[in-house]
Design a protein around this nucleic acid. Structure first.
Lengths: 153, 153
DNA sequence: CTAAATGCAAACGATTTGCCTTCTG
DNA sequence: CAGAAGGCAAATCGTTTGCATTTAG
């Protein structure tokens, strides 16, 4: 089942209403398949002629995050970004350049890597009595372009 | 060599001045040994009767982050947090409760875990031509207290 | 001495909130 | 129909910036 069908189910279970705004926001995130800021999502909605206020966008992104339908990611650029939650096999992480802010998505997780995270998660769940729903891994450093520029100076 | 001595060296190398504000900020982060927001650091400084403007706190946290002396961490609560960088063996990660925002520091990395991150980092450096300086792992979920409350409702 | 760093207050920008209207279930 | 959700504009609050002044090297 693709996540697109899955989320309606989640709404029923948590007794939240399925409204046009919510549908539209999930739609945008599914189509774009990348991390977007609230403002970017808002722009996409306007382009599609869906009239949704920015406050509603924020309120629903908060809700969708709590429901685990979207993931909130932060690259230290002053705003939150949101991306649709994928099935574990498509889970990915980010490399953030601390100089220019560029973000590279890293998706080619090898099987061992995936198993490693699962295992670590289970250890933590037991040790801290904490129900883990997701995880995010960030690598910070300097991208190729910025390294070349630095040398040039 | 503890990081406390190490940072002065880093300042000389990057031709940055060692000022009272900078010393004081690093001092606070070393003493507290936990993640603090800019405002919290500012308060600590005032308690210690160090007169440093909030703008200077922000400017220096930015600088210290770029130098790798402090790590910027974000728990999705609307503000950045900062913690002193530790030696790799003391590196730690965070479990964030998506309901109440509580953050648990997880420090008991096993050796394999440490090696795994190193290995993964090297793979990414090669593949994306990206110089990795640090990484952060976040686990998101629901803490014990919040799970108990949810059931009660 | 001079460029770098600071302090202060004003500016900014992302996110939140209050309140009244609209709509889902 | 009742309570949940949305729209709009105002309010909030973490963070940044401009500029005159101080200071480290």
């Amino acid at each position: 089942m693709k996540i697109g069908e899955r989320w309606k189910r989640a709404f029923e279970l948590s007794r939240k209403r399925i409204t046009p705004s919510r549908k539209a926001i999930v739609e945008v995130l599914e189509e774009q398949r990348k991390h977007l800021s609230a403002e970017e999502i808002y722009s996409c909605l306007r382009e599609k002629h869906k009239k949704v206020g920015i406050a509603t966008v924020y309120r629903n992104l908060e809700l969708l995050s709590q429901m685990g339908i979207v993931h909130r990611v932060n690259f230290g650029d002053g705003k939150e970004h949101y991306e649709i939650a994928r099935i574990p096999a498509l889970h990915h992480h980010h490399l953030v350049c601390t100089v220019c802010g560029r973000v590279i998505d890293y998706q080619d997780f090898r099987k061992e890597e995936h198993e490693f995270m699962e295992g670590l998660g289970r250890v933590l769940e037991t040790k801290y009595d904490f129900l883990i729903q997701s995880h995010q891994l960030y690598f910070y450093g300097i991208c190729k372009d910025c390294r070349l520029k630095e040398v040039g100076e």
